[in-house]
Amino acid sequence: MIRLEKICKSFGHLVVLRDVTLEVDKGEVVCVIGPSGAGKSTMLRCINHLETLNSGTIYIEGQPVYRYMKDGKLVIDREKRVDEIRAQVGMVFQSFNLFPHFTALENVMVSPLHVLREPMAELRPRAMALMAKVGLSDKIDAYPHELSGGQQQRVAIARALAMRPKAMLFDEVTSALDPELVGDVLRVMRQLAFEGMTMIVVTHEMGFAREVADRVIFMADGAIVEEGPPAEIFSNPKNERTIQFLRSVLQRRQDLGEETAPS
């Protein structure tokens, strides 16, 4: 479904991604964990071409996209093609990024209406259903500033789903939320995973990763250090960096009196 092949990205002299290779199958849920500055978000942003690769290739459904070598020549996709690919991959951001001048329902409808040119008669009930799916049927006419962070983020998920994406990218979607609002957002994501959506989730929610992920990826210093099924990564990490990271994260949780370290 999505394949990254030796992708590299640097900002000036700062190397953010070095030769990252990753393959995500259809219907698979991959959670990406790791310390900040590890390149997790940059990797996601590259998949949606919000960042341009320095080298390497991204394949979506087997097709090389954005910029790739073909017969020894560099091909750069036209803007129209890039927009088409982006329309197939949904993305949810840490900072919600809802459009403040549209109501919640309008936020969900604006892109299918103008990009997919879906007729209003079909779109409106579908958008209402999506709002119901994220548990916000009663908020369709609210403007983003009238909603809590958790509600805004759920609208953002509905907005991305409205494009009928083949895969969804979640970029630390609960990091900006008050702790008591995190649960509602995670519940929606869990439901999506259950329905078979292909998902790449950059997260600090270890509980979610352990429970929902098919595979967990640990990144540090712009590279994938360790990957495997969640049970293995969390209970029996092999790499020293992974052990350190998990210890510090789970230690903090213990201090807060939350769940204990993996048994």
């Binding site: 071409h49 927009d83 993305m91 459009f99 892109s111 494009m163």
Partner: peptide, 9 residues
């Protein structure tokens, strides 16, 4: 970024 991610030109 949100507009781009939704496939808008």
């Amino acid at each position: 970024e949100a507009a781009h991610a939704l496939g808008m030109s």
